[in-house]
Simulated scan of single mutants.
Amino acid sequence: MAIVKVACVVVMACMVVVALAPFHAEAAITCNQVRGSLAPCINYLRNGGAVPGNCCNGVRSLSNMAKTTPDRQNACRCLQSAAASMPGIKPILAAGLPGKCSVNIPYKISPSTECSKVN
């Protein structure tokens, strides 16, 4: 009888974990979305000059997509990964891009940003 009670408790605990799984905070934003949003910015990030309007639209879109902490952390990681894989990106231009587009991003766009600490 005690074994049956233990088994029932284990089964109930598993059911609770499965039921709560969809509520676990996972990032919904993908690196493909981040790259796609900022693709119009590549020339600016390499060469400077005027920020294209479609670049700022992408920055705004990215900011609107990244509303939760996991999304912002993932976007941060994706930005760092994308910048590292594209030669010629100037970190100073990347860091200043949100301001140039009048978009408030709650962390510095930089290779040194600790994305796990982004809120």
Rank of each mutant, 00 (worst) to 15 (best):
C78G: 02
A84W: 08
K100C: 09
I105R: 06
M12V: 12
K108W: 05
V4C: 12
I92H: 12
E26N: 14
N104F: 14
V103H: 00
F23L: 11
G99H: 10
N54I: 04
E114S: 11
H24C: 09
P52E: 00
G96S: 08
H24W: 12
C31R: 02
C115K: 01
A25Q: 13
V51T: 06
K108I: 10
I105L: 08
P87S: 14
C31F: 09
G53K: 05
K100H: 09
R35W: 02
P98Y: 03
Y107S: 05
T69W: 05
S37V: 06
E26Q: 15
A84M: 11
G53E: 12
S81W: 00
V17C: 08
S63M: 05
S81P: 01
T113H: 03
K117P: 04
D71L: 03
A95G: 10
F23A: 12
K100Q: 15
S37A: 11
S85M: 10
A84I: 12
Y44A: 03
E114N: 15
I89S: 02
H24Q: 10
V9N: 05
E26S: 14
N32P: 13
G99K: 08
L62S: 00
V34P: 04
V103W: 01
D71I: 02
I92Q: 13
A21K: 15
V11G: 14
D71C: 06
C56T: 05
M86I: 15
C55E: 01
N43H: 13
C115T: 09
V59G: 00
C78I: 05
V9E: 10
N104C: 09
V9F: 10
V10C: 11
V18K: 07
A28Y: 12
A28P: 08
S61E: 10
A82W: 11
V6Q: 08
G53P: 07
G49C: 07
L93G: 07
V118Q: 01
C31V: 08
K90P: 07
S110G: 09
V18P: 06
N32C: 10
L62H: 00
C56Y: 05
C78E: 00
S37P: 04
R60N: 08
S116C: 07
G48R: 02
I42R: 02
C115M: 04
C115G: 03
S116V: 15
I105G: 07
C14P: 05
S85A: 13
R46Y: 05
D71Y: 04
C101D: 02
S37M: 03
G36V: 03
P91T: 11
L62D: 01
M15H: 13
V103Y: 01
K117H: 13
P22V: 15
A19V: 14
